[in-house]
Design a protein around this nucleic acid. Sequence first.
DNA 1: TTAGGGTTAG
Length: 582
Amino acid sequence: MRASAMALIPRIIAGELATFTHPFSLFCSNFRNVGYEGRRHFSSMLRIDFSSVNDIQFASFLFREMIRIRPQPSVAVFNKLLTVVIKMDCHSAALSMFDEMRASGIPLNEYTFSIIIHCYCLQNRVDIGFAILGSFFKLGYNPDVATFTTLIKGLFLDDKAVEAEKLFKKLLDHKICEPNDVMIANLTNGLCKAGSIRTACYYLELLAKMGYSANVYAYTTVIDSLWKGGMVEDALWLFRKMIVRGIFPDVITYTSMIHGLCRAGRWEDMLDLLHEMINQKLSLKAVNFNVFVNILCKKGMVKEGEDLVEIMMQQNVNPDIFTCFTLIDGYCLQGQMDRAKELLDSLADKGLKPDIFSYGSLMDGYCKGGKVNEAWHIFLEVHSKGLQHTTSTYNIMIQGLLREGRFGDGWKLFNDMEAQGVQPDLFTYNILLDGLCKAHQIDDAISLVHTMEERGVNPDTVTYDILISGLCNEGRVDLARDILNQLPSKGGSSSCETNAPDKSTWTGWSKIEQIDDESQSSIVCTARRRDPSGSASHASTQRGEKPVREWTGVSSRRAMHGASDALAQRSKRTLGGAIQEV
DNA sequence: TTAGGGTTAG
């Protein structure tokens, strides 16, 4: 049965190739019950092309059949299959197929060579790509804009941005080929990714003046890179410029630009552009709004976040679980626990299933507000909701208990966590370490650091911050100093991978070396990293926007607006001048 | 060939 069905395939392929003018379209009605390893079933009406071939075994099977059948499919069909195989990231398989095609005497064309150049570029072997380009000329083919685009892309992929730009310039200067929008988009994308945002802008302007039109992809890439590089004003300038040039922003361009304005704290501009996007009647989803709601809530502007949710609902865009999570977290950050709980409880009415992140956020809100029993109640509720606890939810709850001085309960929960097979992470150990230090169990704290190392969890700056402060508080200054002295060697050792702070990252270091033993304690305790964003791994910390819960008595709002102002100031050093010079 | 999402540690 299988053998006879398989025998049908060549006839189908050959027959359909003869019937259809489009060589890449195979009408495979008889693929039904072909029984390819019992896994392939095609609807009788299914019109497939190679893009629906998504596993390498089937692709290889088709390739072998194409090699075997007579009349043989055209090279265009082989090219199409090669492209599909490369898209599956099976580069070696594609190169083997190419070898077999050559060995079988299939007449290759320039597209085959371009596809293979592309394949080598994806393997970071742009050098071989150029070698093939040599054969290209020998065979009398003229590489087209697509081939050169592939090579430019290959150079960028291989971190050869300078060479990529040189090649582009050569093509332009010597009029070897006319750049099209795809080539320009690849050039600007590569330049931006390599950090040469100004150069990307330069080419956008130059090419526009030369009459070469860039597309929305190119403009969006540069706009996105500009604001992410702190140049929001330039991003806005380019955004307006593209419209003047008749290239209209799509939903991606709008969301990127609005995001930039949001990050820069330019709320009025952000709202203007948001309304402009809405008026464009683009197809918007919750995700297109969520990012802005998230930023507003994180900045403590929950009311504005709510307004934004209102706007999205007016557009018939329903909030999703992430929208709700964002608001819940925003309420928690402000200590509005009743509102947070109310929203969480109303999710089902909105047709949304609460997730573990929302519960985690709520628990944390309760813990930080000193309502550990409420948090514990939520913690217990999680299982009944069909959700599983994660390392993070355990961490939140353990920290809540330890901070209340409920050390026994905290450790009991840690044991439960391990018993449940939930892996402790760096957060867990730092929380436990802090608990031990606060409980004056400093020797246990030292042991815990060894334990975590043994378990493959590398201590970080937070770990040492806690431990050294703990030691100083207990009067164990010598040991604190010893540990601090060991940090540089740890950080630089390849055998011990750790992101521990090194000497230069501690502002307290030079002072510690100068002071006498009696006064060390207080000074060592003030040692902090010089650059708080330098080695932080948390995304919001990296942006210097880590929110501070209201009840800590520290307002982060002012600091954050300060950061926005700084960003705005930076953006005033505009690129406009450079752009207009072209 | 363009963007965008999550809770926790000092």
